[in-house]
Design a protein around this nucleic acid. Structure first.
Lengths: 254, 254
DNA sequence: CGAGAAACAAGAGCAGTGCTCTCATTTGTT
DNA sequence: AACAAATGAGAGCACTGCTCTTGTTTCTCG
């Protein structure tokens, strides 16, 4: 809570952009070193067991010195959370943007989700931090919310592009007034201009389902629940995202 | 590894079933007390942060005394794992068996999955232990495998009953030879007599997908990823399992 | 340039952890 | 009654997050 004696976080208003002092640059570098070491530790230690002292030893400092950079272990976790969310989001955005044929919504869908799995497999510790069990007693602060939405924003963009292009989806089984249940998701998409007002509720439901299915699949793979059932997880993953694309009415490019 | 000095776990062969001594009964009771206290602690502490000393205090013992009952914290975790898997499995089996009309596969499907979510919401700590991020450095031993399969066995039974009764599923999008990927799941089902040899691969794929989707949905709900998108998680859950039933070709009872 | 302030690193220390060891006590068997 | 096994308690080791104090380095400003 008490931020010890951090440096002035931002210059006071109407002050010219001063040149970065040696101290400021050193501080950024050491902060980055701590974060890097913490991420490495996270791969084999889990968020709750992350030892701040071990991280300190890795960067050649004494534990109390780390508290100059992060007021608590929770603050370190928050920084790691933001870092990982942003890295994952950037990877997905980049992979999806690399699909040159923007009408190929299936290709974009596959590229985005394959990037998610690729990042998760490459960074299982960070993935567990983001999508595994939350650390008890730790509530992710507001700064983590926006980075956390980057993946679903990309996915929603693909689905809405497909709908605008005329994709059609099978009708829902029951005639239901499901809109109130997913009103939050609808509002989220509309606020970001991703969704026209007439987008059907069922499309939102299916997109949410696809979202949870993909992350559920990755979690099951990384957490060991597919052992014995699925031989090659990468092939299975492609099967899954293809079925989900079909369920959403995404059609191959023509 | 060294099991300290546990009592003789099983009577030697060809010995009559001796009456349980006071000690044996006391041991079972204290073991149960420790497990109960540990489960309570687990709700607000997470598996990795579970304090054996705190559990000991809760049952009025000193920490070293607990080691008479569990050789290590990992062994305690294993016992908790088996306990939770069995409790969840029993709840699902019971709820599914309570559907008197055995031809109502949709009803059985809904009953089973609603029991899973009900148990998960009632025991979030145990759910995180089972389906959250694994405790780093802890490998679940063999004894946990069988209890862990009870839910999917129930689900497979429903799907296979429906198929035997003539349910049909939409064709898969791509013509693929996906059988090798899910060969493990096919073998699993066949070994337990749940699956006739001619069950289509696509049905297995869709069952696996439904399985991961449901647990992905529950995990997203309990781990906070649906906040903002879904207002009433219980309603959303029912929407999801209805869509999954439709995707599997499960039809309403007639 | 040189003084004062700010930032920093190191160490000691506190309360907590998992786990081991020793020792006294209780219980069951012969 | 005698002996062995099982049990509980306590001290102790190495570790943890975190705080506080002390000495040093770096920046800023008169």
């Amino acid at each position: 809570m008490t931020p010890v004696d951090h440096p002035a976080p931002a210059a006071s208003p109407a002050s010219p952009p001063r040149a970065r002092t040696v101290r400021e640059r050193a501080r950024e570098q050491i902060t980055a070193e701590i974060l890097t070491a913490a991420r490495i530790r996270l791969t084999e230690s889990g968020p709750g067991e992350l030892s701040l002292r071990a991280v300190a030893r890795d960067v050649g400092m004494v534990s109390s010195a780390v508290y100059r950079y992060f007021a608590s272990r929770d603050e370190l976790l928050t920084a790691l959370l933001v870092l990982a969310y942003d890295e994952l989001g950037a990877a997905v955005e980049q992979a999806e943007a690399a699909v040159t044929d923007r009408h190929d919504v299936v290709g974009r869908w596959r590229a985005a989700w394959l990037a998610v799995r690729g990042w998760a497999v490459a960074h299982p510790g960070d993935y567990a931090l983001l999508y595994g069990s939350p650390v008890p007693g730790y509530a992710a602060p507001q700064v983590t919310v926006e980075p956390a939405t980057r993946v679903i924003v990309v996915i929603l963009g693909i689905v809405m592009d497909a709908t605008a292009a005329g994709s059609r989806m099978p009708e829902p089984p029951g005639s239901g007034d499901d809109a109130p249940v997913v009103a939050g998701a609808i509002g989220f998409a509309q606020e970001r201009g991703l969704m026209q007002a007439e987008a059907p509720t069922e499309l939102v439901v299916r997109t949410l389902m696809g979202w949870t299915t993909v992350f559920g699949t990755i979690s099951f793979e990384l957490f060991g629940h597919l052992v014995g059932s699925v031989s090659r997880a990468d092939d299975y993953f492609e099967i899954v995202i293809d079925r989900l694309a079909a369920d959403l009415g995404l059609t191959e490019a023509d």
